[in-house]
Design a binder for these strands. Structure first.
Lengths: 134, 134
DNA sequence: CGGTATCCCTCCTGATACTG
DNA sequence: CAGTATCAGGAGGGATACCG
């Protein structure tokens, strides 16, 4: 039963590579950061703890579903802590952990790179777009 | 015609915030990096120029469509150059620009953070997951 | 070799309405 | 206040087949 079609072989290569990528810390991190709201939440909390509804207001346009989903995943990853104060009405505070603050430093590095080089990127785009039909 | 429903107001806030996010260099950059293949292409090319099919082999499992799409967008952003040698058969080389090398340094910083802290993240996940039903 | 064109299908997003 | 449950809509990813 030797034979494997080319398609099957490629499929297997793809699966192996997918597994490799999933196991790669860098890609796990990039996956995380690429979540639309993650960097915004981390940036917002870098300044200090916030309540759920404060975050909801600060990140205008986020739906409760996405906010909760984002916060839960960050809590799971140890980026922030969730503290419930069982008063009436309930109060829930979110705060970055040391790990979260470390991440926010990385985000600052990303931000710095972006701000330093975005102009070059925009220039490159204009150049590229203007040459399309020559 | 003063009245705007709550839904309309939120909709507008969302649109404004979306515009803000789209204009934010950091988010533009994160958007870029979050493309599944971008970081892999940049990392591959950091070691030196490569041909199209070399990249296709190195990034096992990438479809020609996605590879081309990724390369084109990076070329447009001035991250890499595309050089066609009109021999037979055709030969196309891709190479990082100085801007691209600069970006690869940032990716190295991301990679370093990931490798340094991924263990803490995994521990946090295990802790979180194991407490789910207590 | 180095792509382009097409279709499909999945996942994610966000709107909405409801609960403790 | 701080969420959860449900549903639909659309963008993007990938497989495939074909061109210069």
């Amino acid at each position: 039963m030797a034979t494997m079609t080319a398609a099957q072989r490629r499929e297997q290569a793809r699966l192996e590579y997918d597994a490799f990528i999933k196991g790669c810390p860098t890609n796990q991190l990039l996956d995380r950061l690429s979540d639309k709201w993650v960097s915004l939440v981390v940036a917002a909390l870098a300044a200090g703890p916030m309540r759920y509804s404060d975050l909801g207001r600060k990140l205008a346009g986020v739906s409760p579903k996405m906010l909760t989903q984002t916060l839960r995943s960050l809590e799971r990853d140890g980026i922030l802590t969730r503290e419930v104060t069982p008063s009436v009405p309930v109060r829930v505070d979110y705060e970055l952990t040391p790990l979260g603050h470390s991440l926010s430093l990385l985000l600052t590095a990303v931000k710095d790179w972006a701000e330093t080089h975005i102009e070059q990127v925009h220039e490159a785009r204009e150049r590229y777009d203007s040459v399309q039909d020559v």
